[in-house]
């Protein structure tokens, strides 16, 4: 399989740590000096997924709804969407629904029902008594939305960040592969030969 570019969109209320998570994952750095993201930016990271080298392009956008109308251009072609909230802010959790809906409307993926999301509950390094959203509550929500994978992370302490994005990469790759299968299947040809079966092999049935 050739090198793949996976496009990942990170969404969530402003101040929940989208930029921090991305920087922790890509640059292994944390700073509490990140400014509010204006416009959009992205970072890329090469990552091995199932022994396959893929390039993840992580898009960080402004957290204020007002700017979302500009997001369309960035959302298009996304392979996975990461929804981030702050476990210490109930409100940032409650808006996940609308972030998810908004994304599905704007990105309009082929198969919205099965489009891969990953939810990250960030800032778990903060004292326990400040926590507003329980793990159970978050997981219940994720289950109700079609078993969205859920991770509790700390961008500051680098907790679970690597694992979370590994899952993001994996699901994004699967999404990308499915999209590609859709695209190329009409031209599949028996003449191609039996040794070219790498695609179905690796993607067909890992269930």
């Amino acid at each position: 399989m050739g090198r793949v570019l996976l496009k990942v969109i990170i969404l969530g209320d402003s101040g929940v740590g989208k930029t921090s998570l991305m920087n922790q994952y890509v640059n292994k750095r944390f700073s509490n000096q990140y400014k509010a993201t204006i416009g959009a930016d992205f970072l890329t990271k090469e990552v091995m997924v199932d022994d396959r080298l893929v390039t993840m392009q992580l898009w960080d956008t402004a957290g204020q709804e007002r700017f979302q109308s500009l997001g369309v251009a960035f959302y298009r072609g996304a392979d996975c969407c990461v929804l981030v909230y702050d476990v210490n802010s109930a409100k940032s959790f409650e808006t996940l629904d609308s972030w998810r809906d908004e994304f599905l409307i704007q990105a309009s993926p082929h198969d919205p029902e099965n489009f891969p999301f990953v939810v990250l509950g960030n800032k778990i390094d903060v004292e326990e008594n400040k926590r507003q959203v329980t793990q159970k509550r978050a997981m219940t929500w994720c289950q109700s939305k079609g078993n969205i994978p859920y991770f509790e992370t700390s961008a500051k302490e680098a907790i679970n960040v690597e694992q979370a994005f590994q899952t993001v990469a994996k699901n994004a790759l699967q999404q990308e592969a499915e999209e590609q299968l859709l695209e190329i299947s009409p031209s599949l040809d028996v003449n191609v030969g039996s040794n070219r079966d790498s695609l179905p092999d690796s993607y067909g049935c890992n269930c």
């Binding site: 399989m1 050739g2 090198r3 190329i184 031209s187 599949l188 040809d189 003449n191 191609v192």
Partner: peptide
């Protein structure tokens, strides 16, 4: 190529 190659997007 004599046959359409579904893998032609690969840069290999």
């Amino acid at each position: 190529p004599t046959t359409p190659n579904p893998y032609s997007h690969r840069s290999s």
